[in-house]
Design a protein around this nucleic acid. Structure first.
Lengths: 241, 241
DNA sequence: TTGACTTTGTGCGTTCGTTCACAAGCGCGT
DNA sequence: ACGCGCTTGTGAACGAACGCACAAAGTCAA
């Protein structure tokens, strides 16, 4: 029998706000900030929903989980709603991000301008390769990953980004957790095991590509070829859990 | 009233396989390929589920949607299962990928080795900036985005990757669709409108970071400050949809 | 051949999320 | 002051997805 998945037990409802809603709040925030008529002070749920690409009833239900911040007959006050969502997401305080793994991806992330504008600050770049340690990337020095504990303490690192190859991911993850980081964004194609209280989110390009491939394949028509079937197998050679 | 979201109407069930299942198949595939004892020929659902980080009943249900490829009392033949999942995902044929936008991210994606190993081939790199057009990145020349139609036809581009700034995303997307690309992976923080039959998936770092920030914020304790509330607003100044 | 053991495939109850539809509430014009 | 029109907030119905638990089906040993 399977042990209940403790790692995701927290994920369903967090502080009265459902996880599905939390995942959409940043979307609404972005839609609000990019609203065409920013000189206008209110938006209807309908207009905002369209800008965010969701159903308006869903939007209203999501926002109602934060409180009654709308006015019937008028809509939502744009500035106030931005403030409330930002507050709910904890974006009022700027969070320090450490990026581990300075390969192509790590470098791109370090240079990516989107962090600063959205409540995050790239505080440290780390790598284990001596050839890369000491380089300057995006105005920051690349430091040895073994310095993580000190850096984490000094910079108050809140979020760790793993941009290493898959083999190194778990080790780096353990190091981050050890250093007190409890939010991890994982770009490596690996399953991370973490203790309770640590939050991991995964971003995986090739996974998304494969899902796209499936749909593309389906649209093109399924060949439904059925090649070989394996012969009988003894139980002895099976993989043990 | 909201128009039903046509763009995602197809997303629930595709060819008898639920979308949730499709999203996990690449995960299983990766778990199978990275299985510790690859010399052994079969896995139990329990062992594979653990390797993929999911419930074993869910795994079995997912696999049963592809057909009865397991043997009771023994498990699943590893090679055969890899073959079947790959076939279902349409990975038997290698798909050409075009990357548009050769900034930091586009360059990182071009250099990323994960594509080749997983059934994808980076066929073309595109940009609209004359300063970048002509450069060699990852052994490929950067070409002008206006050449997209010819390139798409010549290389049989199946998947377009958008790695441009948000403002350019919709234009690039339209160009891709125009050129016959019907699978798009969007890295830009923008909502893309596409006609029916075109599949868009989104990858968004800062969105994930903000979700992490929420949980981190929640763990730290919610301040629950309530600052200003907006004064009454006339209806005339509201944003029109 | 039989019986014990293992593992798949799935029926079923539950939980979660989405959408519809409408009552309640608010501003505006008269 | 009052009714009209607009928009929010939510009750309720529906549908999807998850996970348990178990029967069906296979292996292995004797």
């Amino acid at each position: 029998m399977t042990v209940p998945d403790r790692r995701h037990a927290r994920r369903h409802v967090t502080g009265g706000i459902s996880e599905a809603t939390v995942a959409r709040l940043p979307l609404y925030l972005r839609a609000l900030q990019g609203l065409p008529g920013r000189n206008l002070s209110t938006v209807s749920s309908e207009a905002l929903a369209q800008a965010a690409g969701v159903n308006s009833a869903k939007l209203r239900k999501d926002l109602s989980q934060l409180g009654s911040y709308g006015t019937r007959g008028v809509g939502y006050d744009v500035e106030y709603l931005i403030f409330q969502i930002s507050r709910e997401l904890g974006l009022s305080r700027r969070r320090a991000v450490a990026i581990v793994g300075m390969g192509n991806l790590g470098e791109a992330l370090a240079n990516y301008g989107g962090f600063a504008g959205r409540g995050f600050r790239v505080a440290a770049l780390l790598d284990c390769d001596p050839a890369r340690v000491g380089l300057q990337i995006a105005g920051l020095p690349v430091r040895d990953v073994r310095e993580l504990p000190e850096i984490s303490r000094a910079e108050q690192v809140a979020i760790g980004v793993i941009a290493t190859p898959a083999q190194a991911a778990q080790t780096v993850c353990d190091g981050l957790v050890q250093a007190g980081v409890s939010s991890i964004l994982n770009f490596a194609p690996a399953l991370l095991g973490v203790p309770d209280g640590v939050d991991v989110r995964k971003v995986d390009f090739s996974l998304e590509l494969q899902i796209l491939a499936f749909h593309s394949h389906r649209r093109a028509g399924v060949p439904t070829i059925d090649a070989f079937r394996p012969g009988p197998t003894t139980r002895a050679e099976a993989v043990q859990p």
